[in-house]
Write a protein that binds this DNA or RNA. Sequence first.
DNA 1: CCCTAGGTAGAACGTTCGGTCTCTTTCTGT
DNA 2: ACAGAAAGAGACCGAACGTTCTACCTAGGG
Lengths: 187, 187
Amino acid sequence: MSTTTVRRVSEARERLLRTASALFYAEGIRAVGVDRVIEEAGITRATFYRHFPSKDDLVVAYLTVVHEAVRDAAGEEVGEQRLRRTVGTMGEMVCSPGFRGCSFINAAAEFADPDSPVHRAVTAHRRWLGALFAADLTAAGHPDPAAAAAHLMMLRDGAMVAGYLADPEVARTTLGRGLDAILAEAR
Amino acid sequence: MSTTTVRRVSEARERLLRTASALFYAEGIRAVGVDRVIEEAGITRATFYRHFPSKDDLVVAYLTVVHEAVRDAAGEEVGEQRLRRTVGTMGEMVCSPGFRGCSFINAAAEFADPDSPVHRAVTAHRRWLGALFAADLTAAGHPDPAAAAAHLMMLRDGAMVAGYLADPEVARTTLGRGLDAILAEAR
DNA sequence: CCCTAGGTAGAACGTTCGGTCTCTTTCTGT
DNA sequence: ACAGAAAGAGACCGAACGTTCTACCTAGGG
């Protein structure tokens, strides 16, 4: 009865990480204690600390998962098409039920110390996303890709906040129109 | 030696609120315990709880102080001039040393429950600011004040995030240009 | 066959959390 | 002169925090 499943990565670890991610995102990181995560994931304290040296490491792992999801959704082929798809995905995300803002913006609100591993993970992701915007804008022939990328990033951050604290639908269309306007500058 | 100072509001209470505000803003709300606030304000536990029934009340008071500061800085006279001044002030704020983002966005990241008094204070402030934008845009003769206000709000939220996590100077100029573009739509 | 890694189970650590309590001192308005 | 509010000082509460520990069980690969 092949329970093989190869199990290159522990199943308990995955459950732990998935549970923690959902909890951290929905309720805030500091608001959720390790006891909560342990109980809800149905694992033991020892198992938790076998996989993650500390809670901070779990938090970083959570942000890494989100980052990789965004990265994989974006893809490799630089250009206007990828930009449209990436921003379009963000617009949809903002409108999805249970949306509670950007994981990275929220994490940065809780971890103020720039030297904190969590804060570092946030800035790393944001630098990566900014570079992606700039690269795609460059490929699209935008005359000032750096400024346009900063503008687009502000629009996306605003959409993330508005999707959580205001009208998501309005946020989505405003973001879309903003991207169109920026792209229109590129001939 | 008139130490009169009238003292309509307690001096200890003001010290407490000022200290708590600085701490909450700089390090995050959940990251700062009441012990920390009490020690740094140089008051006693009993004095704390005499003025605020719970920590949550202190947090709401902190946000109220910020809200009133923004409101007073904006002023009363509706119109394009007030809008320019208000947004200009935000641009400067974003560039000021020690800037750590918008108090309300950060608070909402930590207090997810929409029924929480803290979360309510956040949405109340945001509704007020959105209404101010819409009123000024209407007075400025904008053809679609509601959409423009939402757009401007997203730009301001983006500037708040970027001022904290990216280049503040770029955030300020991008916000300024965005306002100019929106105002240009109003003839 | 046994070694090892990953898992369960659960007690315990010291610290900090938010909050309550009593007692005393200081000051102000009447 | 005196009542009463505001503040200081500090002990105390139970609960939750993140973390460490020992002990035992199991499954897979050498």
